[in-house]
Design a protein around this nucleic acid. Structure first.
Length: 191
DNA sequence: CATGGGATTGACT
DNA sequence: GTCAATCCCATGC
């Protein structure tokens, strides 16, 4: 998708990314779970304002923001909204589509449901690293593409974001209804 | 300069 | 259910 797709309110983009495809390094998967983060709410990395480590989130839309979580995992985001605004969509789970054997080798697990069912898992499966930070998602190495035909108009559920301690009341987590590939089940309202 | 806390995961009780 | 692993940066003395 072009930059204009991401240059919209981050909560909209988070829903529209469900069903889109992420490709990288010989593997691909359909996005089945996302979360929106925005500088206006305290759970966001950008809430504290522009800093060296979060500068990518304030940059132009359509880039990857990759950060290290708990010192161990890399997490993948798509930067949204206008330059200067800190907003991004966290990619939390994929349905594996391509390069399954590669993903299984990298993850050390067989079950398809365990390959990309979490933000740290999918980056390991696709070998996404901190070096991919700030890459253009329409160019790569990490590439996002529009929904395939089978994913046109998916049913989407909204629920509370996972693993945060602030702004927990916001229902800014979005997931594909009925997917077996989520990081956790989403017993929640359908949008 | 020391300390503490994560947008997590996997192993273990 | 609990808990450690382990990095980067924010905060406070």
């Amino acid at each position: 998708m072009k930059a204009a797709f991401y240059d919209r309110p981050v909560v909209e983009v988070a829903q529209d990314l469900i069903g889109c495809v992420v490709s990288d390094d010989g593997c691909a998967g359909v996005i089945v779970e996302t979360e929106a983060y925005h500088q206006s709410e305290p759970a966001s990395h950008s809430f504290i304002g522009l800093r060296p480590h979060n500068r990518t989130v304030f940059g132009p839309p359509g880039r990857a923001y990759v950060y290290r979580s708990y010192g161990i995992h890399a997490c993948l985001n798509a930067v949204c909204e206008a330059p200067g605004v800190g907003a991004a969509v966290l990619i939390r789970a994929l349905e594996p589509v391509e390069g399954i054997e590669l993903m299984q080798a990298r993850r050390g697990v067989e079950r398809l449901e365990n390959l990309c069912s979490g933000p740290g898992k999918l980056t390991q499966a696709l070998r996404i690293e901190l070096s991919d930070d700030d890459c253009d998602l329409s160019v790569g190495p990490v590439v996002f593409t529009a929904r395939p035909r089978a994913w046109r108009d998916p049913e989407i559920a909204a629920s509370r974001r996972i693993g945060i301690t602030k702004a927990i009341e916001l229902e800014w987590r979005f997931s594909a209804v009925g997917s077996r590939f989520l990081s956790r089940p989403a017993l929640s309202r359908v949008v």
